[in-house]
Each structure stands twice: as structure tokens, then as C-alpha cells.
Amino acid sequence: MSAGGGASRGARWTFAAAAILIFLFLYAPIAVLVAFSFQESQVLSWPIEAWSFRWYRLLLEDRELQQALWNSLMVASACVTVTTLAGVPLALALRRLRGRLGRFLEQTFLLPLIVPQFITGLALLIVLNRSDIGLSLWTVILGQSLVWMPIVVVQVHARLQRFDANLEQASMDLGANRLETFFLVMLPNLRTAVVGSALLVFTLSFDELPVTFFLTGAENTLPMHIWSMLRIGITPEINAIASLTVGASVGLILLGVWLLAKDRRRL
């Protein structure tokens, strides 16, 4: 929908003003944060009198932080692997189930996305505790995979709804077995849904705190490490970490947009 020629000028300017204010609200804090990350002084004060890379240098020396970053990358990659390998078959299974049962299962699959995450975290903590399984990064991976599974299932399932079942039939008629049909005919059609949800799971997992909070043992992920830093007090080092994550996410999105555009050109 877009405005016809009759749209009044007053309405246009009112909405534009509101939009500018809202974007200012969304971005001014990020600008402040980035500015403070280059402040020399330990105590935050405005205006900034001396600028330096001091806090970024500190990050380079912070071993614990680097370990946490590494752990987060491992956990996020493992979650992507688990949710993709289990989520795609689950979506295929759901597609086969029609009627009441299918609809019921489809809705129940969404549960971990709807329930507040910390409740899923404590629910798993109870189960693990009762089965005497110790907490570690493995339990974090289990918990997060469980929470992000619906994303993969729903995205792939939605794409399957649009998939032309005749193509599948044709492939089988031409002598391909089910496995060949899946890899050669269906998977190429599911590609963007699979890659898209994998990217989403990666970033969500990288940032996840509520489930990890309950399920991590001695090792910290990056958000857990930042969380414990924040509990101690404000250190300007956090501003530097935050600025870097904003930069990294902008980079990732641009990469995603570029990949999608390239994908579309090829089709």
C-alpha cells in the first residue's frame, strides 16, 4: 500500500516527524554507546574530554572474555547444526500429517517460542537434575536447540506448503527413490528457508541468556560473561564490546542482504 496523490501534505509531515523521532529514539542510545567506548576516562562523563582506544586494547588482553566468545561461537554453531539436522526432518514429518493431529502438533511445536525462555530453562534444569546429568556447554546446546527448533521447523514447513507436490511425484515416477528425490528435488527448493533460519538461529543463540543462565556449568558464554561483568558494575570495557557487536551485526545483515540479492539474480 502507498499513498495516492490525494494524501494530504499535513498528514505526510506529521508522520515523517513521528518517524524521525522514533528512529532518533532507536539510534541515539547506540551513538552514545559508541562514543563512550572511545572515552579515555574510567568514569563516564559528558562531554567526552579525552578520546582513546584504551578499552579496545583491554579487550585484546582479556583472556576470559576471549574464552567466552569462543564458547559462544561453538554453542551457536552446534545449535545451528542440531536444529537444522533435526528441524528439516521434523518439518517433512509434519507435512505428511494432515487434519486435526497435524494442526495440533504444529501448534504444540511452537510452545518453546511462546513460553518465556527462562521457564524452558528451568524446566530442563529440573529434568537434568533428576536424571543426574551435570551442567556444561553440552546442556546449554541442548537447551538452546530446543528453544530455537520451532524457528527451523516453522520456516521450512511454511516453504514446504508452497512446494509443488507434482515435482516430487514426477521425480519418483522417473525412478528416483525417496532419498534422491529429497536431496535433488526438494532440498534445492528449501535452500533459502534452511539458510535463513540457520542464520537466525546462529544470531539468536549467540545472544541467548535466559536458558544459558540455568543450564551452564563452569564455562561462560559471551552474554553470561557480560552479564557477570554488569553485575559487578559499569566498566567502559563493556561499551567497547557493545560497539563491536553492533558493528558485527550490521556487517552480518549486509552480508545476508547481499547473499539474498545474489541468490535472486541467479534464479
Binding site: 542510545p29 547506540i30 552514545v32 554507546l33 563512550f36 563516564l44 545472544d207 541468556l209 552474554p223 557480560i226 552479564w227 554488569l230 559499569i234 563493556i238 561499551n239 564490546i241 557493545a242 557487536t245 553492533v246 551485526s249
Partner: peptide, 12 residues
């Protein structure tokens, strides 16, 4: 970007 850090911004 991080939920945690977006909440923290308001502290400063």
C-alpha cells in the same frame, strides 16, 4: 544486536 546490551545502554 544483544538484548542484554540494549538494556544496559539505558544505564549509561
Amino acid at each position: 544486536t544483544s538484548f542484554l546490551l540494549r538494556a544496559y545502554i539505558w544505564k549509561i
